[in-house]
């Protein structure tokens, strides 16, 4: 058990193992994304009230899920780094922050586009949208804090603390925003809670949620691997890797 734990913390071991799984994960992600997108765009029936604009749900909802889940991934990685001083956890955290910020942005953006045909306006100060905006701020805080430190260990610890403080505050922020919204809810805009979806609409959504979980894992692993290479670039094994992948890098640098 402890040997396994120890090995899990080794960046080199992670790099090599994840390298073996990566192609399969990439294929699975792509397949799920293609199936889900086609199903959602072309085969699911349109919504009776919203028409075809409801098809944005197949991006918006999975992305929102992962934007929120990603914050917990980041915070847990930070906590692991703080408690057990596992460097790999800090690399995962470094990888998770910009990814989460991008997904939160995407959730806000698709939500805004969806809002235009549905509510007639791009931006509504709705509870969920406002919470998402706060989440974006929380992510950006971690990203910027990470970049402003010169010492890597200090940056890792500081970001971990910030992420944990954010985590315990997220429920409070969400509840308060919820409360605030019920207080100010304008009469003209009635946001129905999720009405029971028709199975024909719901099945592609499930596929898309699964697809985006795979996508998140894929990008997180890609980012972590790059971070590993960057931090371990003075070690022998990374240098060996650079030599053995000489042909590949030659190819990409020629393309650029």
């Amino acid at each position: 058990m402890w040997r396994w734990f120890h090995r899990l913390g080794s960046p080199r071991w992670f790099y090599q193992t994840s390298g073996r799984w990566l192609p399969w994960l990439a294929v699975l992600t792509l397949a799920l994304l293609v199936i889900g997108t086609l199903w959602g765009l072309a085969f699911a029936p349109e919504d009776a009230r919203q028409g075809n604009s409801f098809r944005i749900i197949y991006i918006h909802v999975p992305v929102s899920f992962l934007a929120l889940a990603g914050y917990y991934v980041m915070a847990v990685a930070g906590a692991v780094n703080l408690i057990w001083r596992i460097k790999l956890a800090d690399m995962v955290m470094t990888a998770a922050a910009p990814l989460g910020a991008a997904l939160t942005f995407l959730a806000l953006f698709t939500g805004a586009i969806w809002g235009k045909p549905t509510w007639g306006t791009y931006w509504v100060w709705d509870a969920r949208i406002t919470s998402m905006l706060v989440l974006l701020f929380l992510y950006l805080g971690v990203v910027v804090l990470r970049n402003s430190f010169s010492g890597r260990d200090t940056a890792g610890k500081a970001c971990a603390i910030l992420a944990l403080v954010g985590t315990v505050n997220i429920p409070i922020i969400y509840k308060s925003v919820d409360w605030w919204f019920t207080l100010h809810q304008p009469a003209t805009i009635k946001l129905s809670g999720a009405p029971s979806m028709h199975p024909d609409m719901f099945k592609p959504l499930l596929v898309m949620i699964l697809a985006y979980y795979c996508f998140y894992a894929l990008v997180l692993i890609l980012n972590t691997r790059t971070e590993i290479l960057h931090r371990e670039r003075r070690t022998a094994w990374v240098n060996d890797l650079a030599v053995s992948e000489l042909a590949v890098t030659e190819l990409t640098s020629n393309e650029q």
């Binding site: 706060v134 701020f137 929380l138 950006l140 805080g141 910027v144 804090l145 402003s148 430190f149 200090t154 500081a158 603390i161 910030l162 403080v165 954010g166 505050n169 409070i172 922020i173 509840k175 308060s176 925003v177």
Partner: peptide, 23 residues
């Protein structure tokens, strides 16, 4: 405390702290 050692901590401080101020 998080930004004390940074030279340009002021703006960053606002970004970090603002979400916590919402409630």
């Amino acid at each position: 405390a998080l930004t004390v050692a940074l030279r340009k901590g002021g703006v960053l401080l606002s970004l970090i702290v603002m979400p916590l101020y919402f409630p």
